[in-house]
Simulated scan of single mutants.
Amino acid sequence: MKIAILVEGETEKAFKQILSDFLKLRLPQMPKLKFIPQKGRIPKGEKLKRVVENLLNQDDYDAVIALTDVYTGTNDFQDGADAKAKMKNWVGNNPNFYPHVAQHDFEAWLLPYWSTIQKLAKSNKSAPGGLPEKVNHGNPPSYRIKEVFETGKCQRSYSKIRDGARILKDQDLIVSVNQCSELKAFINTILELCKGDLIP
């Protein structure tokens, strides 16, 4: 099973190792997962359709998953359901394409590891309240983590690539899966494609 995962940038690539470690425990045979960064944004319209069709037809992938942030700095998407519907519509009726979202951005999936964020930032700032994927109020999770680093004693800003990987290192992904329904949906798509048991 070859699965291409379209991601916005290098941050999400940092997620590949923890995802692979998580899947290895749940699948009899690991799929070949290729994370393909899209220079900051998942393509829109006909361009997304072309990218997906090329991966399926020319590169022989069995499935293509697109993983976009809902918060993109633009008003492209109202919410996760709107983002998935638009991506599905752009690609057309293709049974091997699976749109998924990080609500509001990828960093929502890091919020369950707040104690690690505090340790790296050398900060005692308390975690945002509520479920990680509901945290926004004009201040998405990536901004919250950036603020913790910049006000903490580590005296530097949050780097998505460096610190995203450090926050996830040696973590159990089920902690985030149990708090983040969009992450669970994304992982369940991979498990289902590979005939694994879904996470309830």
Rank of each mutant, 00 (worst) to 15 (best):
71 Y>W: 13
71 Y>P: 01
71 Y>T: 01
72 T>Q: 07
72 T>D: 06
72 T>K: 04
72 T>N: 05
73 G>D: 07
74 T>I: 01
74 T>A: 03
74 T>S: 10
75 N>I: 08
75 N>A: 13
75 N>E: 15
76 D>T: 08
76 D>E: 14
76 D>K: 07
76 D>F: 08
77 F>R: 07
77 F>P: 06
78 Q>I: 15
78 Q>M: 10
79 D>E: 11
79 D>F: 06
80 G>Q: 03
80 G>L: 06
80 G>N: 07
81 A>L: 13
81 A>T: 13
83 A>C: 03
83 A>V: 00
84 K>Y: 04
84 K>Q: 14
85 A>D: 14
87 M>T: 12
87 M>S: 08
87 M>V: 10
87 M>Q: 15
88 K>P: 08
89 N>L: 13
90 W>F: 14
90 W>V: 13
90 W>P: 12
92 G>A: 07
92 G>R: 06
92 G>C: 08
92 G>D: 10
93 N>H: 11
93 N>D: 15
94 N>H: 14
95 P>N: 14
95 P>C: 09
95 P>R: 11
95 P>H: 12
96 N>K: 12
96 N>Q: 15
97 F>L: 07
97 F>C: 09
97 F>I: 07
97 F>T: 04
98 Y>Q: 08
98 Y>V: 05
99 P>D: 08
99 P>N: 10
99 P>Q: 07
100 H>L: 02
101 V>M: 00
102 A>P: 01
102 A>T: 05
103 Q>K: 13
104 H>L: 01
104 H>P: 02
104 H>M: 05
104 H>I: 00
104 H>Q: 11
104 H>N: 03
105 D>L: 02
106 F>H: 03
106 F>W: 13
107 E>K: 11
107 E>N: 10
107 E>A: 06
108 A>N: 10
108 A>I: 04
108 A>W: 05
109 W>N: 04
109 W>A: 04
110 L>F: 06
110 L>S: 12
111 L>H: 05
111 L>R: 06
111 L>G: 09
112 P>M: 03
112 P>A: 03
113 Y>E: 04
113 Y>K: 02
114 W>R: 06
114 W>M: 06
114 W>F: 09
114 W>V: 02
115 S>I: 01
115 S>G: 02
115 S>H: 07
116 T>P: 02
116 T>M: 07
116 T>G: 02
116 T>Y: 02
116 T>I: 12
117 I>V: 08
117 I>C: 01
118 Q>V: 04
119 K>C: 00
119 K>Y: 00
